[in-house]
Simulated assay, not measured.
Amino acid sequence: MRNSLLLAVFACSGAAHASEDIADKYPNSLLYDMPVEVIPGVFSAIGATAPPTYENSGHNNNLSFIITGDGVVVVNGGAAYSLAKALHDEIRAITDQPVKLVFNENGQGHAVLGNNYWTEQGVPVVAHQEAADVVEEYGGSILDGMKRYNRDKAEGTKVQGPTVTFEDEYIVDMGNFHIEARYLGPAHSPGDIVIWLPEQSLVIAGDMAFHERMLPIFEDTYTADWLETWDTEFEPLGATYVIPGHGHPTNMDQVRRYTKGYLEYLRGEVGELIENGGGLAEAYYVDQSPYTNLDTFEELATKNAGRVFEQMEFE
């Protein structure tokens, strides 16, 4: 298989090497980078560790797929019709097995806006019910936002929700793989799911886990709930290999450091501020220097601190 990478490289616990300053690592495709084989049969096209832009075509998350021996399972519909097609072109270059199933990791644009490409191919799209609700309620505005940065690259994209939904788990046995799509509990955004391959000890974590870039805290991101889900459901998976929602494939130690570790650190800083009588204006300036190495730090750090303050005021 082309681009097969040594697991030792992905699993290393060294410093992050991504850079949000690289506009495009794969100029011959709308994909930000070409797919790499993480473990045998499991591939991921690693997105930019930057906000979505015209230059990266909105490919700023990880688009993964599993070649099972009896068909291909894709994880994430992609940020646009054209981006989904570009991913499909890469899959076809690797295997003649047809795509039989697509999962959306949540209801965000980079997970769902390529759905109508896949449904045109007759492929079922599966997501958690909460993700489907997000697409139904906000799909139009999500699409409009993508059109503003992606311009002509948005051509052909229409709002298409998942065609199959579930509440707790959706299990697939296909070819050589036992695949478990699981909703573990509240995390980064409504309907976040993980794709767990227990026989390979690999989890495609979606936005449950971040690596190499700072995670964003949205209005509906409840950090205390995310930490509880992490401790009670995600960590006990005991995954050897982790494909995070953003950043290169790695191991549990690294995503713990940049996801759980960051959330606990920020909540600690904000909690101390609240105990000392500080207000929202001061919260924006709490010390986050241990995480300045992360991409999107400049874009997200102050916003994150403000939202955590607003949450913790009422906890």
Rank of each mutant, 00 (worst) to 15 (best):
A205K: 04
Y54R: 14
Y222S: 08
P244A: 06
N176M: 01
G175F: 05
G114E: 01
E120C: 07
L31H: 07
E315C: 02
Q311A: 04
L7F: 11
E272A: 15
A224V: 10
A23G: 04
V36G: 01
F103V: 11
P249I: 07
I67C: 06
Y262Q: 02
Y285H: 10
R267P: 01
I94F: 05
Y222N: 11
P51R: 14
T157R: 06
N106Y: 08
L83W: 03
L294A: 04
L87S: 05
T292F: 07
H211E: 04
E233W: 05
V255A: 08
E235T: 04
N304H: 04
D152K: 08
D70W: 01
G77K: 03
I217Q: 02
A50F: 04
K303Q: 13
K158G: 10
D287Q: 08
G175K: 02
Y284E: 09
R213V: 13
N293M: 09
A23P: 06
E313L: 13
G145Y: 10
G14L: 13
Y284Q: 03
T223S: 09
K25N: 11
E233P: 03
G78Q: 03
K100H: 05
Y81K: 08
Y26W: 12
N176H: 04
M214Q: 10
P186H: 11
T95I: 11
I142G: 03
F177D: 00
V242T: 03
T163S: 14
N276I: 06
V42K: 01
P98C: 08
G78Y: 01
I22P: 00
A111Y: 01
S19G: 14
A239F: 01
W230H: 10
I274V: 11
G107T: 12
A239I: 01
